[in-house]
Protein backbone atom coordinates (compact mmCIF):
# COMPACT_ATOMS: atom_id res chain seq x y z
CA UNK A 1 0.00 0.00 0.00
CA UNK A 2 1.06 3.59 -0.62
CA UNK A 3 1.23 6.17 2.15
CA UNK A 4 0.26 9.78 1.64
CA UNK A 5 0.82 11.49 4.98
CA UNK A 6 3.63 10.52 7.34
CA UNK A 7 4.10 11.78 10.88
CA UNK A 8 7.52 11.70 12.52
CA UNK A 9 7.50 12.66 16.22
CA UNK A 10 10.89 14.10 17.13
CA UNK A 11 12.18 14.31 20.66
CA UNK A 12 15.69 15.56 19.99
CA UNK A 13 17.26 12.13 20.49
CA UNK A 14 19.80 10.40 18.23
CA UNK A 15 17.16 7.90 17.04
CA UNK A 16 15.22 10.76 15.37
CA UNK A 17 17.68 10.73 12.49
CA UNK A 18 17.00 7.17 11.36
CA UNK A 19 13.24 7.75 11.56
CA UNK A 20 13.45 10.92 9.42
CA UNK A 21 15.65 9.23 6.83
CA UNK A 22 13.29 6.29 6.59
CA UNK A 23 10.35 8.66 6.27
CA UNK A 24 12.11 10.45 3.41
CA UNK A 25 12.66 7.19 1.56
CA UNK A 26 9.02 6.16 1.91
CA UNK A 27 7.88 9.66 0.97
CA UNK A 28 9.95 9.68 -2.19
CA UNK A 29 8.65 6.30 -3.23
CA UNK A 30 4.98 7.02 -2.40
CA UNK A 31 4.95 10.79 -3.06
CA UNK A 32 3.90 11.30 0.53
CA UNK A 33 4.11 14.41 2.70
CA UNK A 34 6.04 14.35 5.97
CA UNK A 35 5.24 16.30 9.13
CA UNK A 36 7.73 16.36 11.99
CA UNK A 37 6.19 17.24 15.37
CA UNK A 38 7.90 18.09 18.61
CA UNK A 39 5.68 18.11 21.70
CA UNK A 40 6.51 20.20 24.76
CA UNK A 41 4.87 18.59 27.79
CA UNK A 42 3.52 21.28 30.11
CA UNK A 43 3.29 20.49 33.82
CA UNK A 44 -0.19 20.46 35.31
CA UNK A 45 0.56 23.22 37.76
CA UNK A 46 0.98 25.62 34.82
CA UNK A 47 -1.68 26.60 32.32
CA UNK A 48 -1.42 24.79 28.99
CA UNK A 49 -0.34 27.91 27.13
CA UNK A 50 2.43 28.77 29.63
CA UNK A 51 5.55 29.70 27.68
CA UNK A 52 8.86 28.26 28.74
CA UNK A 53 11.45 30.09 26.60
CA UNK A 54 14.16 27.45 27.06
CA UNK A 55 11.83 24.60 26.12
CA UNK A 56 10.56 26.46 23.08
CA UNK A 57 14.06 27.27 21.93
CA UNK A 58 15.04 23.64 22.31
CA UNK A 59 11.92 22.56 20.40
CA UNK A 60 12.72 24.93 17.54
CA UNK A 61 16.28 23.64 17.29
CA UNK A 62 15.11 20.00 17.35
CA UNK A 63 12.78 20.80 14.44
CA UNK A 64 15.49 22.73 12.58
CA UNK A 65 17.76 19.73 12.88
CA UNK A 66 14.95 17.49 11.57
CA UNK A 67 14.72 19.75 8.49
CA UNK A 68 18.48 19.47 7.93
CA UNK A 69 18.41 15.69 8.18
CA UNK A 70 15.55 15.56 5.68
CA UNK A 71 17.42 17.86 3.32
CA UNK A 72 20.53 15.70 3.52
CA UNK A 73 18.34 12.71 2.68
CA UNK A 74 16.99 14.62 -0.38
CA UNK A 75 13.58 15.02 1.21
CA UNK A 76 11.54 17.75 2.82
CA UNK A 77 9.17 18.04 5.73
CA UNK A 78 6.77 20.39 7.48
CA UNK A 79 7.42 21.05 11.14
CA UNK A 80 5.11 21.76 14.04
CA UNK A 81 5.82 22.67 17.64
CA UNK A 82 3.03 21.64 20.03
CA UNK A 83 2.32 22.15 23.71
CA UNK A 84 0.35 19.44 25.48
CA UNK A 85 0.00 17.77 28.88
CA UNK A 86 0.95 14.36 27.54
CA UNK A 87 2.91 13.80 24.33
CA UNK A 88 1.38 10.40 23.49
CA UNK A 89 -2.23 11.52 23.33
CA UNK A 90 -1.27 14.78 21.60
CA UNK A 91 0.45 12.79 18.83
CA UNK A 92 -2.46 10.39 18.42
CA UNK A 93 -4.94 13.30 18.24
CA UNK A 94 -2.77 15.14 15.76
CA UNK A 95 -2.41 12.04 13.58
CA UNK A 96 -6.19 11.70 13.51
CA UNK A 97 -6.80 15.35 12.66
CA UNK A 98 -4.19 15.44 9.92
CA UNK A 99 -5.29 12.21 8.28
CA UNK A 100 -1.89 10.62 8.90
CA UNK A 101 -1.57 7.07 7.58
CA UNK A 102 1.88 6.23 8.91
CA UNK A 103 3.75 7.22 12.05
CA UNK A 104 7.49 6.56 12.12
CA UNK A 105 9.13 6.95 15.52
CA UNK A 106 12.77 6.68 16.45
CA UNK A 107 13.28 5.10 19.86
CA UNK A 108 16.41 4.81 21.95
CA UNK A 109 17.99 1.58 23.06
CA UNK A 110 17.08 2.45 26.56
CA UNK A 111 18.10 0.50 29.58
CA UNK A 112 18.62 2.65 32.62
CA UNK A 113 18.26 -0.34 34.92
CA UNK A 114 19.95 -2.78 32.59
CA UNK A 115 16.58 -3.67 31.08
CA UNK A 116 14.88 -2.52 27.90
CA UNK A 117 11.52 -0.81 28.07
CA UNK A 118 9.31 1.27 25.83
CA UNK A 119 8.69 4.84 26.93
CA UNK A 120 5.19 6.01 27.84
CA UNK A 121 4.81 8.06 24.64
CA UNK A 122 5.77 5.18 22.36
CA UNK A 123 3.51 2.80 24.26
CA UNK A 124 0.57 5.17 24.08
CA UNK A 125 1.01 5.67 20.33
CA UNK A 126 1.32 1.91 19.73
CA UNK A 127 -1.79 1.25 21.78
CA UNK A 128 -4.00 4.02 20.50
CA UNK A 129 -3.00 5.25 17.02
CA UNK A 130 -5.41 4.16 14.30
CA UNK A 131 -2.80 4.25 11.52
CA UNK A 132 0.29 2.12 11.05
CA UNK A 133 3.23 2.72 13.36
CA UNK A 134 6.83 1.87 12.58
CA UNK A 135 9.52 2.03 15.21
CA UNK A 136 13.23 2.51 14.49
CA UNK A 137 15.31 1.47 17.45
CA UNK A 138 18.84 2.84 17.43
CA UNK A 139 21.75 0.42 17.25
CA UNK A 140 23.52 -0.69 20.39
CA UNK A 141 26.48 1.44 21.26
CA UNK A 142 29.75 -0.35 21.87
CA UNK A 143 30.31 1.13 25.30
CA UNK A 144 27.00 -0.20 26.62
CA UNK A 145 26.65 -3.71 27.91
CA UNK A 146 24.20 -6.09 26.28
CA UNK A 147 20.64 -5.85 27.57
CA UNK A 148 20.11 -9.53 28.02
CA UNK A 149 21.53 -10.99 31.16
CA UNK A 150 23.41 -14.12 30.45
CA UNK A 151 24.07 -16.74 33.01
Amino acid sequence: MAFSRILVPVGGIPADEQAIRLACQVARQDKAKITAIHVIEVQRNLPLNAEDAAQMERGESVLARAEQIAKAARGSLETELLQARVAGSALVDEAGERGIDLIIMGIPDRKPLGDFYLGATTLYVLKNAACRVWLCREGRREDQPAARKEK
Partner: peptide, 11 residues
Protein backbone atom coordinates in the same frame (compact mmCIF):
# COMPACT_ATOMS: atom_id res chain seq x y z
CA UNK B 1 -5.90 5.33 33.88
CA UNK B 2 -5.08 3.48 30.66
CA UNK B 3 -8.75 3.16 29.74
CA UNK B 4 -9.46 6.83 30.44
CA UNK B 5 -6.43 8.10 28.53
CA UNK B 6 -7.24 5.86 25.57
CA UNK B 7 -10.79 7.28 25.50
CA UNK B 8 -10.34 10.88 26.57
CA UNK B 9 -6.65 11.59 25.90
CA UNK B 10 -4.06 13.06 28.24
CA UNK B 11 -6.43 14.23 30.96
Amino acid sequence: CDIISAELGGI
